[in-house]
Simulated scan of single mutants.
Amino acid sequence: MPTVYRLDGYRFFFYSNEGDPREPVHIHVMKGGAEAKFWVRPVIRLERSYGFDARTLRKLARMIESNGKLISEAWDEHFGG
């Protein structure tokens, strides 16, 4: 599970095995016992969430948008994209 970055206690990461065929670029976010998955391209969109409230999910979406380039570059580097 490569960690892309950490911010405000949240861990932004992806799993090394992201489906077969591989899913499009996305990021998982964890903090405490909560986890969410967001699609990154072509737009930031929540896929699923367990344990995060709506306000936190909006905050996470903004964090992901601000770091979209970093996420995409890390994805491409890890998966050879």
Rank of each mutant, 00 (worst) to 15 (best):
V25N: 01
S16K: 12
E47V: 11
P42T: 01
M63G: 03
E77R: 14
H28C: 03
P21K: 09
R6N: 11
F38W: 06
N17T: 09
P24S: 12
M63C: 07
Y15T: 08
R11D: 04
V43P: 05
Y10Q: 04
D8P: 05
K37W: 01
Y10F: 15
K69N: 13
S16W: 03
G68D: 07
R11P: 06
G33P: 04
F52C: 08
L60M: 08
N67P: 08
A36M: 03
A61K: 11
S49N: 07
Y10H: 14
R55P: 08
A61P: 06
A36G: 01
V4S: 10
D76V: 02
D53E: 15
R6C: 03
E23S: 12
R58H: 13
A36K: 07
V40M: 06
K69D: 14
L60F: 02
A36N: 01
A34K: 14
V25K: 00
S66Y: 04
V40H: 02
F12S: 03
T56P: 00
Y15Q: 06
Y50R: 15
M63F: 14
R62T: 11
R41F: 00
P24H: 11
E65L: 13
G9V: 07
R6F: 07
R11F: 06
H28Q: 10
R6G: 00
I44F: 10
K69C: 08
F14P: 01
E73T: 14
G33K: 10
